[in-house]
Write a protein that binds this DNA or RNA. Structure first.
Lengths: 248, 248
DNA sequence: CGGAGGGTTGAGATTCATCAACGCGTGTGG
DNA sequence: CCACACGCGTTGATGAATCTCAACCCTCCG
């Protein structure tokens, strides 16, 4: 006997890190309390200042978490694709949510209620560890964002973003598709769409061409310019002397 | 029978959140495996790219975590005072450390080795929860930094920083002392020392005067200009109509 | 006394955001 | 089927804001 949440989960292609290594019983427990929701594009799932309801697991579509101020400015903190989660950290901050969550397209999400999460954390060390790892990864990402805005030029920021996408996609492919609208990526990287566009042109001379939404690289080392010490560690070409890489 | 770590801990004035609500046994277990270290000013405890050794609990002094690039630029991610911890998140990221840790003054620290932490996390749900809360708080802070650099002016960034210090200090005091050198704070806020200095002058017109290292406010609402929705929730004056606060 | 480091101030250069216009593809309603 | 509006991305001109460089003052300390 499966409920809606279990069914949705079974049909999900990628395994969310949130559920890594969980026992059947634990997984069933989580899913049985969860709710599947569908949302149109540009829907607000959470408003900055709201009391968080639970963890949001994105089943399909794209969404962003962002902070906004009174006069309409917004800073995108994260952009999620299917399989990603958000609001885990917020649950453990206490207090209202410091971010809004908004869909970037039609979305299907799984909502795991706060109480279920908090109960499970206390019972299941593995679940607890998964959340800890996820939050840590988010934090690491945030550190990269901070440092990028301090000490990197727009070109470098985009380059580093491309590098991570390239590594995610599987490093052997010489092209990949931007998972979000350029606008959103630009904001995420702390610049205007105009600056983003102009920076892309500059990158042609580095062997990186943008053709609409697909980014094409001249060779596998084109992005090595943008590597840094802790990213190099996860790079499969790590040990090779990678052409332009300043680390070699 | 107490080891050095236990003794140090006993003499510590503030209770680190890391140890909140732990059983005697658990605490003893942690401390018995930990090491007390002393470091001079400007010492590198961890280099970006190093394999993390364990959690660092600052017993006395000040230190920073930062990311640096090849050409000497650095972005300060956090600045710690006595009782703060760092490297918890890094342990659970996997891979080398994305940040360096460097002392800002003579420091005494407690190092809790990686293995001890990881073992304890699996055994003690409360310890696990403490770490999760700490990392979540760091993450929240990081989100504030990101959004500040996107959409806030230098004056606003400093104002928000002062506001948090003011709330930490106890909101009833109309002055407080900067816990770090202005240089460091400036970098932490993503600006140069010059810009920091100039911004301070602008703030005089808002009733905020800087006299060396001490910041003096004309009235208790001077900093309300810089409040935002999720900070207001922890503000003790939250319910009052606070003069200049744009939220009221 | 002299040097070093931190902080402030000023002038100039650079960079990025802003504003405005345009091209293009898409969807929609007449 | 066409006209039109709309969203997205691009390009250009302009201006403001911040960084950079340089000089200076101050305190602290040998």
């Amino acid at each position: 006997m499966m409920n809606a949440a279990s069914k949705e989960f079974a049909s999900l292609s990628c395994k969310p890190q949130l559920f890594d290594g969980l026992s059947e019983a634990c997984l069933k427990q989580l899913l049985s309390h969860s709710i599947v929701q569908e949302h149109p594009s540009a829907a607000m799932l959470v408003q900055q200042g709201d009391i968080p309801q639970g963890i949001v697991l994105l089943l399909a579509g794209a969404l962003k978490t962002a902070r906004m101020n009174e006069d309409g400015g917004e800073a995108i903190i994260r952009m999620l694709e299917a399989g990603d989660t958000c609001m885990e950290a917020v649950l453990f901050m206490g207090g209202p949510s410091p971010v809004s969550v908004q869909t970037l397209s039609k979305c299907k999400v799984l909502l795991i209620p706060e109480q279920t999460v908090k109960n499970t954390v206390l019972q299941d060390a593995r679940f607890s560890l998964n959340i800890l790892r996820i939050v840590s990864r988010h934090y690491k990402n945030a550190m990269h964002q901070i440092d990028a805005m301090h000490i990197k030029s727009p070109v470098q920021r985009i380059g580093y973003y491309f590098l991570t996408k390239h590594l995610e996609a599987g490093h052997d492919d010489l092209e990949f598709t931007l998972p979000f609208k350029k606008q959103a990526i630009a904001n995420y990287l702390g610049m205007t769409p105009e600056t983003f566009s102009r920076a892309l042109k500059q990158m042609k001379s580095l062997g990186i061409r943008a053709d609409g939404d697909v980014i094409k690289m001249k060779d596998a080392f084109a992005l090595c310019h943008f590597c840094d010490a802790d990213t190099a560690a996860v790079c499969p070409k790590h040990d090779d002397p990678c052409g332009g890489c300043p680390l070699h």
